[in-house]
């Protein structure tokens, strides 16, 4: 089934790209195969302007208020938040582990930087995920070409700046092939 592509409304501020919000929650005791992952992930909606973004975001639960094993995903419209998608196949992601209580602020700063095109890496950004877990939370940003070191370095430096992370924060880059 073909979905309608989001378009900016009259008087709204268009974004460089359209994006889609997704939500997933792990069902305890179930295997995490690709099929069940795809079944557990739900589209919240797509947007094409700053105002449309706020209409979704303002009604979403903040990551710090989520319980259990849940994730919010923000990906460019047309890219599924999974490694199997063509846009992600040769890609990788920066991962930042956060102590509890920081995820809401970091997630908001991260998505505002993505929507505002603060990363300056052309078409490279695919999307971002905030993963709420029991002990800590994880934020990640995915890009298309894991082997492009200039791009991954620029993403890392922009992340440090926009998230205002403590200097000792550990950032880890994982690439698709190593993981699967």
């Amino acid at each position: 089934t073909k979905r309608k592509v989001a378009v900016p409304g009259a008087g709204e501020h268009p974004l460089q790209y359209n994006y889609t919000f997704w939500y997933s929650r792990r069902t305890p005791g179930r295997p995490t195969s690709t099929q069940s992952y795809e079944q557990n992930i739900k589209q919240i909606g797509s947007f094409a302007s700053v105002e449309q973004f706020w209409r979704f975001y303002s009604h979403m639960i903040r990551p710090d208020d989520l319980t259990g094993h849940s994730d919010f995903h923000l990906f460019k419209e047309g890219i599924k938040p999974m490694w199997e998608d063509d846009a992600n196949k040769s890609g990788g992601k920066w991962i930042i582990r956060l102590r509890k209580g920081l995820a809401s602020r970091c997630w908001e700063n991260l998505i505002l930087a993505i929507l505002g095109e603060q990363f300056m890496v052309g078409e490279e950004i695919c999307g971002a995920v905030v993963s709420v877990r029991f002990q800590e939370d994880i934020i990640s940003i995915w890009n298309k070409t894991a082997s492009d070191q200039a791009t991954t370095a620029r993403i890392r430096d922009t992340l440090r700046r926009v998230l205002n992370l403590p200097p000792n924060t550990i950032m880890e880059y994982k690439n698709t092939h190593r993981q699967h």
Binding site: V50, W54, E117
Partner: peptide, 21 residues
């Protein structure tokens, strides 16, 4: 081509627009 760039401050200001509700 031209890129549409917004800083954080501008994006946060748009939140209070009637179009954002």
């Amino acid at each position: 081509g031209t890129r549409i760039i917004y800083d954080r401050k501008f994006l946060l200001e748009c939140r209070s627009s009637p179009l954002a509700r």
